[in-house]
Design a binder for these strands. Structure first.
Lengths: 190, 190
DNA sequence: CCACTAACGCAAGTGATTAGCTTTTACGGC
DNA sequence: GCCGTAAAAGCTAATCACTTGCGTTAGTGG
């Protein structure tokens, strides 16, 4: 549901979508985020502006789609032998990627052009899936005191994202570790 | 720092700002958020569009300023006799207001037209100030086990905002209460 | 292979945004 | 209180993003 309806998943529609997304990525790298405009993207993608307007509505919704793609995790969380180590490592990497200049821009874009909240939900689902992988691995090891997925989302993921969005200063990997410790040391009550 | 530089705090500048902000609020109530446009706001405010463009840059930054104003708390947290009750009541009200249709719209607007993060930081500061009031009152009562302000921000405010922004479904006052219980039942370690 | 229709291309029209210049008006020193 | 200065607003014209209607192309399903 990234682009509006997409009643025709294959053929020309797919080619246009790929071409437009590629054009956005290229132009963003070349001229920067501010210089992006629908006619410019259309020209690079080899389509007419009206095509983009009809499928995406406006530049923000298009950027939101591209941003969500880029926020998709490309690797599984690394295995460090224990839940605590896995979660700490994942949280640090998550914070690093999300709090980078590029990460912040993608998060903003993803939230921005997202009338129904579908793209934002996708971002949350990505993080939840990564957390599930870590927790499942811990379960497979037979570890004790494994927190609920929602506990990790509430007390690790949410604080990181909140600070990135609302308090753009002073984020460190130590903070991510601290959040993980806090989440794990709670008595499992939920 | 709401409007860009504001080198001249008084006189005409202030009148224009007030007039423009009022025009945004009025038109939003009359014709709805979608119908808002810079020339329209300018006409209602009795200024020329170029004035708005020069001072705010674009409609999003203007709406961001207005949204932050509307997100400012207008009342102190009520006194219910104990930290636990005060925090639970405040969190419930906070969730209610922020997760309403209007609240979501203001949050989005505030984040949207906010290049430097100043307006988002202001929103966070509002919440932090409210939390501080609750915690200070508990201290004045001589209560034990008062959490740090940052603990409440991380484990109550952040999860609420995260869910509002990224998971637009299934928010209840029970969830706010649950977060408060969790934050208070942790052993004070930070 | 053919009919159907969603999606694209094209082009004209609308209106938001920008830019250059002039005019107003707040602020600071006398 | 009265100027000098410069910031901020008014004005206008030009540009460009965006919309819209219609003809064409090309997947899709029979």
């Amino acid at each position: 549901m990234s682009p509006k309806p997409m009643a025709r998943p294959g053929g020309r529609s797919a080619r246009v979508q790929a071409s437009v997304h590629a054009a956005v990525r290229d132009l963003e790298a070349e001229r920067g985020r501010e210089a992006l405009t629908v006619p410019l993207v259309a020209a690079r993608a080899g389509v007419t502006p009206s095509t983009i307007y009809r499928r995406w509505g406006d530049l923000q919704e298009l950027l939101s789609d591209v941003a969500v793609e880029r926020l998709r995790p490309d690797t599984e969380p690394a295995d460090h032998g224990s839940l605590r180590a896995d979660l700490a490592a994942w949280a640090e990497q998550f914070l690093d990627e999300m709090s980078s200049t590029a990460g912040r821009a993608y998060i903003r874009d993803a939230l921005l052009g997202d009338p129904d909240g579908g793209n934002a939900g996708q971002c949350s689902a990505y993080a939840a899936a990564q957390v599930d992988l870590v927790l499942d691995r811990a379960r497979a090891r037979g570890e004790e005191g494994i927190p609920a997925r929602e506990t990790v989302m509430d007390h690790v993921v949410a604080p990181v994202m909140y600070r990135i969005l609302f308090r753009p200063d002073g984020l460190s990997t130590a903070y991510a570790r601290h959040l993980v410790e806090t989440a794990l040391d709670r008595r499992a009550r939920d």
